[in-house]
Design a protein around this nucleic acid. Structure first.
Lengths: 117, 117
DNA sequence: CCTACGCATTGACAACCGTCAGTTCAATCG
DNA sequence: CGATTGAACTGACGGTTGTCAATGCGTAGG
């Protein structure tokens, strides 16, 4: 645990009643939290969340040319969101000739999903 | 579904092979996606994710004075993060005398959690 | 009252984000 | 080769975010 656990809660306590239970600390490692927060951040945009949703329910790979018309956005903007998802490790891409296909990386959401449950 | 479903995928298709499966559309409503993305966005910061983690495993309410020393941040910054979580509907707060207690709102994470699984 | 305390708010600032128009690049076709 | 096509990259822009110092505000104790 990288967050220091201040065992002595506070030095000044004007009244007798305790503020709250003595020690409360996150038992999620900071790295663990940072990793999950990065995934959550990538999902923190409606467009990207829907992109993941499309790719997830479409088991195989989906062409970018199919994704762009689903949103009222320019092609570069959709491409940018896909790049964000790729850099977050949520999706992968693969080129086949002129087209680029994206797919969800299996288990990429597992850590966050498990923590949420 | 608010996203228009362009049934005719594309007009120009230079080669015979199809780009990919004909239609792929998100069956998550846009409002649904926007709501879940807002929750994910609130969790998209390591500090806020750890705050939620602390509050969650601490069944009852936790005093702010216990939360601040867990992080290497100023008290206003922690207060700001708590405000973000409150505005996202993830936590609630309650004052008792000098102290403010925060707690996780039950079921606030359920929608996102269900979608992730 | 007056002081001290816990917490929230404000103002400021650098950094980052979402978006688009324009451009580039690789690959395919004629 | 030259033209076209799908997708990524670049530059620019307004808006948002995370952080802190400083301040404000309500409550409790003397």
């Amino acid at each position: 645990m990288s967050i220091d656990l201040e065992l002595t809660p506070k030095t000044k306590r004007p009244v007798g009643q305790p503020c709250c239970e003595p020690v409360v600390y996150p038992d999620v490692e900071r790295e663990h939290a940072t990793r999950m927060a990065a995934v959550a951040k990538a999902l923190g945009d409606p467009v990207r969340l829907q992109l993941i949703d499309v790719l997830r329910r479409h088991a195989g790979k989906v062409c970018v040319c199919e994704l762009v018309p689903l949103f009222d956005l320019s092609q570069p903007t959709v491409s940018h969101h896909l790049k964000v998802l790729r850099q977050a490790g949520l999706v992968g891409s693969e080129r086949q000739g002129l087209w680029a296909y994206y797919y969800v990386i299996p288990d990429a959401l597992d850590e966050l999903s498990a923590w949420l449950s």
